[in-house]
């Protein structure tokens, strides 16, 4: 079972992620996490099965999810490479523009050195690259305890809070 960091704790994940070109027949369990395209084309059928997890690749947008995002318990954003920073924008958009309140997970190639940026962009779950010391990664969440910008975790920029 892959272990991930969720809200500063180490948890096990029992969900299966289905590959990008999967169709409806690939869905085995209601906990399966389906690719965006499958969700968009089969929303009703998947909802009926109780599926509530969708994953989005870094070159996709959340536009097609606008009406159904509130049904999801898990939105996972794929980082094909840790230097591919599109996921940071997708995370903020999910939280700030689409008001997504479920679990927002970063997975793929994610480094512990990105943990605090991810948290600031609204991610509450992180599946780090293999071999990561997860206790050390939890410490990295607090690499910075003060920030200049507004973001998901602190909607007011420092200049509105400075005393």
């Amino acid at each position: 079972m892959p272990r991930l960091v969720k809200n500063e704790a180490i948890v096990e994940c029992h969900r299966q992620f289905l590959p990008k070109d999967s169709d409806l027949t690939a869905v085995q369990n209601r906990t399966d996490v389906v690719p965006l395209s499958l969700w968009v084309s089969q929303t009703e059928a998947l909802s009926a099965l109780g599926v509530d997890g969708v994953w989005v690749d870094s070159d996709e947008t959340l536009d097609a999810l606008t009406d159904t995002l509130s049904q999801l318990a898990l939105l996972a954003i794929h980082f094909p490479a840790f230097v591919d920073g599109r996921g940071f924008s997708l995370g903020r958009l999910a939280r700030e523009r689409h008001q997504f309140s479920g679990e927002l997970r970063a997975f793929g190639y994610v480094l512990q050195d990105q943990a605090h940026f991810l948290r600031r962009c609204g991610f509450d779950a992180m599946d780090f690259r293999q071999g990561t010391d997860l206790n050390s990664a939890i410490e990295s969440l607090a690499d910075f305890t003060e920030h200049y910008q507004a973001s998901v975790d602190q909607p007011r920029p420092l200049f509105r809070r400075r005393t």
């Binding site: 591919d84 920073g85 940026f117 920030h147 200049y148 910008q149």
Partner: peptide, 17 residues
């Protein structure tokens, strides 16, 4: 200076193209 502070460790823009 305002731009310096805003851009320092901007969480969304640390891994640009």
């Amino acid at each position: 200076e305002i731009i310096r502070q805003w851009s320092t460790f901007h969480p969304e823009f640390a891994f640009l193209p």
